[in-house]
Amino acid sequence: MFLPNAREVLDHKIALARSYGFTPVSPGDLAVPETETRHQRGLAISAINESLMSSADLIIANLTPFRGVAADIGTAFELGFMCARGCPAFAFSNCTENHFERVSGLYGGEVRLGPDGRHRGPDGFALENFDMADNLMLDGGIAARNGAVITRKVAPDRLFLDLTAFEECLNLAAERLLKTAASA
């Protein structure tokens, strides 16, 4: 996580996950080995994250737009990795504007319907307009695994701190996965 109080936020998320009956894994739980270069350090962090994901049974991904109009690219990779493993997938976003609305904003209202029936920016590029929280592959991967994307509008200063939607994902995942396993 990139927050100045990342450990505090991770600890809160871990406690919430445990309270719903899950055993969470978090990249903040493992020490990154010393390396000679920044590149090697980045590769070490990537290997740790992949190892943690390989040990996990599901994912709850934070799709809140990060440094732009879409989810963090690392989170998108993680979601794809877990979907490729066939794991249940859930996600949340503390932004209620859909992907199309956010991308349209980049063009300052200059999006037009093209002759092909697709929305296009002044640069000619088509915009996805599927009423989805993020790129159709992220929403689609979650839906294909009987997951859900929970969105909430929060105050701008709470964008990465408010865990209400995260907790809703935990509750939904517990209902769908833990209760189903208990009745089997």
Rank of each mutant, 00 (worst) to 15 (best):
residue 126 A to E: 02
residue 180 T to D: 09
residue 73 I to T: 08
residue 4 P to I: 13
residue 95 C to P: 04
residue 152 R to W: 00
residue 174 A to E: 00
residue 19 S to C: 04
residue 37 T to F: 11
residue 61 A to M: 07
residue 152 R to I: 06
residue 60 I to G: 13
residue 27 P to N: 05
residue 69 V to R: 10
residue 75 T to F: 12
residue 145 R to P: 00
residue 86 G to F: 01
residue 136 L to G: 06
residue 46 S to R: 15
residue 176 R to D: 04
residue 42 G to N: 10
residue 53 M to W: 13
residue 39 H to R: 12
residue 32 V to A: 07
residue 95 C to I: 15
residue 32 V to K: 12
residue 57 D to N: 12
residue 170 L to C: 07
residue 41 R to Y: 09
residue 154 V to Q: 02
residue 157 D to I: 06
residue 91 A to I: 04
residue 159 L to I: 11
residue 43 L to E: 10
residue 53 M to S: 04
residue 113 L to N: 12
residue 123 D to Y: 08
residue 89 A to C: 06
residue 179 K to P: 00
residue 25 V to Y: 10
residue 126 A to S: 09
residue 29 D to I: 05
residue 22 F to E: 06
residue 64 T to S: 14
residue 182 A to K: 15
residue 129 N to W: 00
residue 49 N to L: 09
residue 104 S to C: 15
residue 16 L to I: 05
residue 82 M to A: 07
residue 123 D to C: 08
residue 94 N to D: 10
residue 33 P to E: 14
residue 147 G to V: 02
residue 85 R to I: 01
residue 122 P to C: 10
residue 141 G to E: 00
residue 45 I to M: 08
residue 65 P to K: 04
residue 102 R to E: 03
residue 150 I to D: 01
residue 151 T to S: 10
residue 15 A to H: 06
residue 105 G to Q: 12
residue 3 L to Q: 13
residue 170 L to T: 02
residue 74 G to V: 06
residue 166 F to W: 07
residue 123 D to R: 08
residue 41 R to P: 07
residue 119 H to L: 11
residue 30 L to D: 10
residue 78 E to M: 01
residue 81 F to Q: 09
residue 184 A to I: 11
residue 80 G to N: 08
